[in-house]
Amino acid sequence: MKERAAVEGRLLDDDARLTLNARYGHFTAMQVRDRRVRGLGLHLERLEAANRELFGAELDRAAVLASIRAVLGGDLRDASVRVYVTEADRPRVMATAAPPKEAPAGPLGVTPVVYQRYLAHVKQASGFQQAHIGRQAARAGFGEALLTTADGLISEGAITNLGAFDGDRLIWPDAPMLHGITMRLLERMDVPQERRPLRAADLPHLGQVFLCNSWGLMPVGRVDDVALRQDEKAMTRLREHYDGVAWDPLD
């Protein structure tokens, strides 16, 4: 018998059924503006590396770009786009488009949560745990959760990378994490950079603490009830570098 699936009483076609069953895989998330993407090559490299690790197969770059163009259609120029490579009967490339997202102005409050992702360096298609952690943090009045080890070492945010910048040096956590695309673009800044073990108690003693993801850059204003210093000049310098990154055309 052929496998079937239904949603709210409606049978799904084959493609929708395969999408519903695709729980194993990886993805990348990007912001599209005027049909351009920052760091498109880095997104493709991320997908290629994860594809080899999870599926033992090379990525079809043409299928990725074709899926992005298809989901944008002829009318969308700005969107939040995700590209998934998931396995139903075989690895398949899928893309989704949603309204564009901008980074919240902040400063954001964050709260540490003890949780470490399996294969942290892979952006995994199934993200129930992170989604739940993020929702719980939001209900408690925080803009993001910081994922930590049992002894308090910070690795990353639930959907972000965390860094600190004092105007002269960029500091990143030294822990297993997803090496985010925006983080990689910031690593191109011509300033000294280092990775070091970081705990929540260290953050008030650093420069401007910030979060970054495909939405952009967000200053952090507090960890739980502890206020962090705000350095507008440091944030401006980070944003100037990020805003100066070239946008790669999709067409």
Score class of each variant (00 low, 15 high):
103 A>P: 01
129 Q>C: 15
112 P>M: 03
149 T>Y: 01
87 E>R: 09
76 L>K: 03
197 P>E: 01
48 E>Q: 12
9 G>A: 09
72 L>K: 03
133 I>R: 07
184 R>P: 07
234 A>M: 07
212 C>L: 07
146 L>H: 08
247 W>R: 15
23 R>S: 15
163 G>M: 05
112 P>L: 09
153 L>C: 14
112 P>E: 12
200 A>I: 05
243 D>G: 06
5 A>Q: 12
240 E>H: 13
33 R>M: 10
52 R>D: 03
159 I>D: 08
124 Q>L: 14
28 T>V: 13
29 A>R: 03
222 R>E: 08
129 Q>Y: 07
190 D>V: 11
147 L>W: 02
134 G>Y: 06
207 G>S: 04
243 D>Y: 04
91 P>S: 02
203 L>I: 00
227 A>W: 08
5 A>R: 02
122 V>K: 07
59 L>S: 05
94 M>Y: 08
239 R>L: 13
90 R>H: 13
193 Q>W: 10
127 G>M: 14
151 D>V: 07
51 N>W: 09
166 D>I: 02
62 A>F: 15
179 H>N: 14
145 A>I: 10
31 Q>C: 01
80 S>G: 02
72 L>Y: 02
100 P>Q: 04
40 L>Y: 09
189 M>G: 00
16 A>W: 13
193 Q>Y: 09
46 R>F: 11
205 H>D: 08
20 L>K: 00
56 G>Y: 01
19 T>V: 12
54 L>A: 05
9 G>K: 15
249 P>A: 12
93 V>N: 00
243 D>C: 12
68 I>H: 00
71 V>R: 06
101 K>S: 12
181 I>N: 03
50 A>P: 01
180 G>Y: 02
27 F>M: 11
17 R>Y: 14
248 D>W: 10
250 L>D: 11
189 M>R: 05
59 L>H: 05
131 A>R: 11
91 P>E: 04
247 W>G: 06
105 A>L: 14
199 R>S: 04
96 T>M: 10
68 I>Q: 00
154 I>F: 11
92 R>G: 08
204 P>M: 00
5 A>W: 13
167 G>A: 08
101 K>V: 13
188 R>P: 01
244 G>N: 10
240 E>F: 06
71 V>F: 10
68 I>R: 07
112 P>W: 02
20 L>C: 15
127 G>K: 12
95 A>F: 10
63 A>V: 13
55 F>E: 07
244 G>E: 07
97 A>R: 01
47 L>A: 04
131 A>D: 05
236 T>C: 10
108 L>D: 01
